[in-house]
């Protein structure tokens, strides 16, 4: 049995873990992470381990810090003025806040999909080719074509757009745009994909397609998804972490969190008493 979570955090908050880990390899490991927005203490002593090639869901009420914590993992919080992150986050045992680490390289390894689909105002092809181009992953047109096709196929979008790759990405429907953004993220061949409420702007059918896609991507990628929908967490994730007021309350396998939570707050949230 794998110890997924440190039993107690620096803040003295008791973090329990429930159930068993499905895999043994740990991809992302966070220890005692605190985040401050100026004076505001947004994340308090969060420690969590994310197993490789599985889906972990972050759930919790609005403003609980789950998106903030997600953005620590590819250092997107660096782009916000006045945001300070302390503690230790390791990707494959390498400290990602190490001064020697190139943030560009980190973000190539840890991709991100946002709440609202944000395709660039370029063609579908250019949207996917953007990452491979800036990272110099391709040599020649044929190579690039292959990567674009492969990424779009992985994002389950190829069949829909193969005849109009030159058309602007902003002209697609919301669900297609989000899958385009997923294709864009996987085109640079990341190891981890962070998804910040990827379905909150989509209708139920588009949501179902994206969830299906997440399930397929799990074969090759480590996925962390922030979601407001507990049904979604239950459907797509193997691990679940419950955040409340900046604290990681409880984490464990999704099945156990949803059927047999230890903490009263988790129980209350899951049964819909607050949130």
């Amino acid at each position: 049995m794998e110890q997924l979570v440190a039993p107690t955090s620096k803040m003295g908050v008791d973090v329990r873990h429930t159930g068993e880990a499905g895999t043994t390899e740990i991809k992302v490991s966070a220890q005692n992470v605190d985040v401050f927005y100026g004076e505001k203490h947004a994340i308090k002593g969060v420690s969590v381990n994310v197993p490789a090639r599985s889906v972990m869901a972050f759930i919790g009420p609005s403003g609980c810090g789950k998106s903030t914590f997600l953005r620590c993992i590819n250092r997107m919080n660096d782009t916000i003025e006045g945001c300070k992150v302390t503690g230790n986050i390791r990707l494959d045992d390498r400290d990602i806040y190490d001064a020697n680490l190139d943030v560009v390289e980190l973000r190539a390894r840890v991709g991100m999909v946002f709440q609202k689909p944000n395709p660039f105002p370029k063609s579908i092809f250019e949207n996917v080719a953007y990452g491979p181009r800036i990272h110099g992953l391709v040599h020649g047109k044929a190579d690039l074509d292959a990567i674009v096709e492969q990424s779009l196929r992985k994002a389950a979008l190829w069949e829909e757009v193969k005849d109009r790759l030159k058309e602007p990405g902003t002209g697609l429907s919301g669900g297609q745009q989000q899958r385009l953004c997923i294709a864009r993220a996987i085109a640079v061949n990341p190891e981890v994909i962070l998804m910040d409420e990827p379905c909150s702007a989509l209708d139920p059918i588009a949501t179902a397609r994206v969830e299906e896609l997440i399930d397929e991507l799990r074969q090759n990628y480590t996925i962390i998804i922030v979601t407001h929908s507990m049904q979604q967490a239950a459907r797509v994730s193997q691990q679940t972490a419950f955040f409340h007021l900046g604290i990681l309350v409880e984490t464990g396998s999704t099945e156990f969190i949803f059927t047999n939570p230890h903490d009263q707050r988790t129980q209350d949230y899951i049964t819909g008493r607050f949130g």
Binding site: N74, M76, T79, V104, E105, L106, R107, A108, G111, M112, F114, K116, N118, P119, F120, P121, Y130, G131, I134, H135, C181, R184, A185, V188
Partner: peptide, 18 residues
């Protein structure tokens, strides 16, 4: 220019100049 576009580019690992 919406912030989301900028974030999207940075999150793929583009530098600020790119």
């Amino acid at each position: 220019v919406p912030r989301s576009l900028r974030d999207g580019s940075l999150a793929i690992g583009a530098t600020r100049a790119e």
